[in-house]
Structure formats: structure tokens, C-alpha cells
Design a binder for these strands. Sequence first.
DNA 1: ATATTATACTTGTCTATATAAGCTGTCAAT
DNA 2: ATTGACAGCTTATATAGACAAGTATAATAT
Lengths: 241, 241
Amino acid sequence: MVKSKTDIIAQDIAAKIRHGQFKAGTFIPSENQLTTLYGTSRETVRKALERLNSLGLIQKIRGKGSIVLNLERYSFPISGITSFAELNRSLGMNAKTKVLELKKMESLPKFFKEKFPKQSKQEGIYVERLRLIENEPEVLDCDFLFTPPIKELPLKVAQNSIYNYIENDLGLEISYATKEVTVERINTDLQKKLAVGDNLAVLVASHSFLSDTTPFQLTLSFHDPSKFKFVDFARRQKIKP
Amino acid sequence: MVKSKTDIIAQDIAAKIRHGQFKAGTFIPSENQLTTLYGTSRETVRKALERLNSLGLIQKIRGKGSIVLNLERYSFPISGITSFAELNRSLGMNAKTKVLELKKMESLPKFFKEKFPKQSKQEGIYVERLRLIENEPEVLDCDFLFTPPIKELPLKVAQNSIYNYIENDLGLEISYATKEVTVERINTDLQKKLAVGDNLAVLVASHSFLSDTTPFQLTLSFHDPSKFKFVDFARRQKIKP
DNA sequence: ATATTATACTTGTCTATATAAGCTGTCAAT
DNA sequence: ATTGACAGCTTATATAGACAAGTATAATAT
């Protein structure tokens, strides 16, 4: 994966923001200054800034400059496709993954069909993983990985990062996902696994796709409602929903 | 507000997708074709396509084209800043707004301070509104509008669209918001207003800003958990969180 | 028949240039 | 002191051109 100049500039500025070199509430150098700093054209700088703008790291203000926003994007993000392993690393939390199940299946498990009714039955791999933070159950992730394109899933991978395996080992490009968040009643089995008192859980159902629009993963994540939190950043849309 | 060519092209293509002129799973015309169709440069077309891509309406595939994605973005969106009035119009649901309270205040209400502890006390307008769908309570919205920039709020506006008032009447530019979703225990008063059995509600706390980064609104939205649902579209980030 | 090459598409990236428009401070006229 | 014109910043938009790289198909050589 070759990085474009736009990627390099965006990541460099993002790093400078994270490390406090560019501080919240202050203006970063102007586009012309950045142009000479990185030795590129202004359009390239602008594309990098546009990316940071849409991510909520900066706010562009016409006639003035680009101001660094106050981001404390801690918590448990749903927005943006991020894997548990990535979160663990970037947030530095004491997290563990316990693989409860891992098996090949000829068709979609029944409780997946309720949430994904349009999904035709298909071969795949089922993984059930309990996520623990500070040794307390936090999330139960049930994944179904479609068998083309994913033929196998070593246990080692399930314990670590499936996303890393898909992107780096299999060389596939993860592109986007649709997610649906609801609050659902759960049975005693799930209640026990999550160690929650209520019979309610937050369910995040997501459908993930590769960059050629091939679906490769369905996920049902059951969260302890008392620990569930997610933070989102949204820009006002110029296009009606 | 003058529309740029990029805006026009993006909205035109979005409309064609919504109206089924460009169907899900098919490719839209190539960038060169769109360039001659709209009589612009390729970069302008590309900016419009990039916007649709990030919104999840299309997927760009290198060497092949841009494919229309399968979007059924019904439900109750949180992502993207959209007001209840806008949702009502675009989704055509039978919705009503009941203004429970509307008053000027010298400082932030106490229960806002818990969720927004960093917010210093400030003058503003407090509005409490019950949202009904099919005559059933769905959401209780508690808004606090900062008094600069919002001096007054006619009752008529609270009954309709505050966003429309801010953008069109006051001429301010709404830009972005941060949102936090949690599940919280609520008191009997709230339970009665929302007409829910559980003593749990989904709380969406959001902090909205103008394009010059001035905060103008805090919102606490209490949702009936059994009716709460939101759908999100997320692209894999090129920048680490 | 199979494999290779050529080609004509497609999108991705980058450059250089031009004009428009918003913001701020300066300076002069009133 | 206030106003107004202006210069010099800033970002916003649009254009034309070039080359790279991925995809698909047709022609060609083996």
C-alpha cells in the first residue's frame, strides 16, 4: 500500500495535532505555507486538510484559516470502522479477548437471520468472542465471515485482530460498513456471558464490505448497557438524507 | 447561499439515485461522461463523486467506475446533523412536536451540567419538546440555546424547525456537532413524559457548533429504548483514531 | 487452445493557474 | 471618532493538463 502525498500530509498534520504541536483552538499554518513546507501544490494540501476537516480534527474557516478542534475522542467509538484490537492499541486500555467459539458453518446462524433477513444462506466462519476490559466483560462479539473471500481463520487471529489478518495477510481492502444500533432484550445465556443484571443489552449489528463492494462480515455486538458509550462527530450534510 | 457546481452535480446525481434513475448495483456514467454531461472539468465532477462516496451513496472502484450502493437509510439517524423537522419531511412520518417548556435562563440547567461539565454557566434559552410519532411519545428533546448567538426563540419556531430558523432567519451557518450515546436510568417524571415501562432510556447528548466554531446548542435527547434505532454508515479511516 | 501483448477504457494523483470571496488592519477623508 | 476605500492576507471554486495504475477486451504469438 503506497501512501500518496495527500495521505502523508494528512497523517503528519494529524500526528502534530495529537502530539500537541498544533494545539486546540489555534490556527495551523496557512495553505500556502503548508504548500511550501511539504513542497507540493496547494490542491494536494487542500485535499489533506479536507480529510482532517471531515474527520473533525480541524475546522476550516474561509478568510481566516484552519483551526484545531477540541477532540477528546476517547470512549467506545462505533463510527468509523475500527476493530477492537486497534482500539485497544490506540486507547491503551487493559483489554483481553476470549474466544468462546470458532467453527466453519454451511449457512448463516439462525439469530443472524433475524437481524439480516435479506442475507441468503451462505458458507462461512462463525466466531464468538468475549471482550474484557479490566477483566470485566464488556462486549460479546458474534462474527460471521463469508467464505469467499475468507477461507480460513486461525485461532491466533481470532484472539488478536481479524481486521489486521484480512488487510495484511490476505491483502484485502476493507472499505465500509453499515451499522444499526438498538436496545434488545437478551436471554439468560447471554446475560450470564456478559455478567449483566438487566435483561437488556445494546446491540450493534454491522455489515462490512470490501472496496469492490463484496460483503465479507456480519457482526452482532452485545454491549453491557451500563458500560456502553459511543462518541460521534457529524458534519451538517449538504445533501438531503 | 450560492450553490457551487460541485453542489449541483452532487445533488443531481443523488436525486437520480433516489429516484431510481441510477439503480443500486449498477455503474453511474464515467467521470469523463459526467464531465461532458455537466460541461465542467473532471476535477469538479470528482469532488462531487467524492462527496457521494463519503456519504455512502456510491462506491468508487479504481479502473472500473462508481457503483450505486444499496441504501435503505430509513430509521432514526443520529449520524449527520439532521433536525427532527427535516426528518419528518424527508421520511414522511406522521410526527408532531409538543412544546412543554420555553424560557430564558441566566445559566445552564443543573442536569445539563452533569453531561457537559466543562460548560461554563451562560445565558440562554431552554426548550423542552416531546416528539410524537403516530401519536406515541418517541423522544424528549431538551435544548439549551446559547444567547449569543441566539437572542430569541419564538414559540412558533420551537413548534417547527429551530434549525431552519437559525440557518434561514438568523443567517447562521450550522457546521458540526459532537454526540455521545449512552443508556441511562431515568426518574419517574421522565418515565411518565415518555410513557415507558422501563426506567431506562437512551440518551443522546449533543453539542452543536457554527462554522466559526461558536457553540450554539446543547441537546439532551431521551429516547424510548424499545423504539430507539439508528443507522450509520462508516468508511474505514485512513487516519488512526 | 493457451498464453501474451496491445489497447482503450476506467479511476487516482499531482501540478499550475486563475478568479472569487471572506477577514483584518491601515490609512485617509469626513 | 466614525466611516470608507484599499491592500494583503486567507480559503473556495474551477479549469486544463499530465501521468500513473487498475480493469477488461481484443488481437496476436506461441
